[in-house]
Amino acid sequence: MAMGLMNSGRGGRRSRRAPMAEINVTPFVDVMLVLLIIFMVTAPLLASGVPIELPDSNANPVDQTPDQVTISIDGEGYVFIDDARVPVGGLPQALETIDRGADGKGPIIVLRGDKALDYGRVMAVMGELNRAGFNSISLITNAKGAATPVSSGSSDEE
């Protein structure tokens, strides 16, 4: 304590630093770049959250519109509206909750079905969509490879 009095009594110099008026933004930029990379990698995975192995087709690609609802049927037969799983037997009630819009026609329905599914299961979902009043349904396929050629079904060789 005596030293403190001695220094201040003689007009000694006080060592005080001036406040710094600059902000170092380098760590902030580094964090933002890492977050940007994370979002760029995960954004395509969020487009279709239900893993489905689509059948192949040679059809032209369908334009995506913002007023569309994706209905997916996975390999086990469970139905999803966008990414939400619909309880078994609850598809009619879930379809009633879809917003019809101002014109009353409703959004375009995009139907994705696993290629291992029974044809009857896909038709049952399409029947429920039709009964709910959704008449504009797009079937989504995989366009990577050529589709298996369709035979006429009549093999009358004698």
Results as ranks from 00 to 15, higher is better:
73 I>L: 06
36 L>P: 05
68 Q>C: 09
66 P>R: 12
75 G>E: 05
14 R>Y: 14
77 G>P: 00
100 R>W: 03
117 L>T: 03
144 K>Q: 13
87 P>T: 05
42 T>C: 13
92 P>T: 02
6 M>K: 11
111 L>M: 15
81 I>Q: 02
109 I>H: 00
126 M>N: 04
14 R>V: 14
80 F>P: 01
43 A>K: 12
18 A>Q: 15
97 T>M: 10
38 I>S: 08
94 A>F: 04
48 S>Q: 11
58 N>V: 07
13 R>Y: 11
142 N>E: 07
29 V>Y: 13
84 A>F: 08
136 S>R: 06
18 A>M: 15
60 N>W: 06
108 I>T: 08
110 V>M: 09
30 D>T: 12
100 R>V: 03
82 D>V: 09
20 M>R: 10
111 L>N: 04
133 G>H: 02
51 P>R: 06
91 L>R: 01
84 A>I: 09
47 A>P: 03
17 R>M: 13
40 M>R: 09
16 R>C: 12
34 V>I: 14
8 S>G: 13
20 M>Y: 09
106 G>F: 00
45 L>T: 13
134 F>M: 02
55 P>C: 08
85 R>S: 04
17 R>V: 15
43 A>W: 15
126 M>C: 04
74 D>W: 04
98 I>W: 00
117 L>A: 03
10 R>A: 10
47 A>V: 15
107 P>H: 02
112 R>N: 10
108 I>R: 01
117 L>G: 03
40 M>V: 15
54 L>E: 06
17 R>W: 10
142 N>H: 08
12 G>M: 12
71 I>H: 01
73 I>P: 00
105 K>Q: 05
41 V>K: 07
49 G>E: 12
78 Y>W: 05
75 G>P: 01
6 M>R: 12
121 R>M: 10
7 N>F: 15
114 D>T: 07
126 M>V: 05
82 D>K: 04
142 N>Q: 08
106 G>K: 00
53 E>H: 11
120 G>C: 06
127 G>D: 02
8 S>F: 14
7 N>D: 14
112 R>I: 09
28 F>R: 11
72 S>A: 10
42 T>N: 11
53 E>F: 08
97 T>G: 07
71 I>R: 01
121 R>V: 11
61 P>Y: 09
56 D>S: 12
113 G>F: 04
95 L>G: 00
82 D>E: 15
38 I>T: 12
22 E>K: 09
116 A>K: 04
22 E>N: 08
40 M>S: 13
18 A>G: 11
80 F>S: 01
135 N>R: 04
130 N>S: 06
87 P>G: 04
36 L>G: 15
10 R>L: 14
143 A>D: 08
45 L>Y: 13
121 R>E: 07
57 S>E: 07
117 L>V: 05
59 A>Y: 07
70 T>K: 03
132 A>E: 01
94 A>V: 07
29 V>N: 14
117 L>P: 01
90 G>C: 01
140 I>F: 10
39 F>R: 05
68 Q>R: 11
22 E>C: 07
55 P>L: 06
136 S>K: 05
59 A>K: 07
22 E>R: 08
72 S>N: 03
5 L>T: 10
130 N>P: 00
114 D>A: 09
65 T>Q: 06
14 R>E: 13
118 D>R: 06
117 L>E: 03
49 G>W: 11
76 E>L: 06
126 M>H: 03
109 I>V: 14
73 I>Q: 00
113 G>H: 06
88 V>I: 10
105 K>F: 05
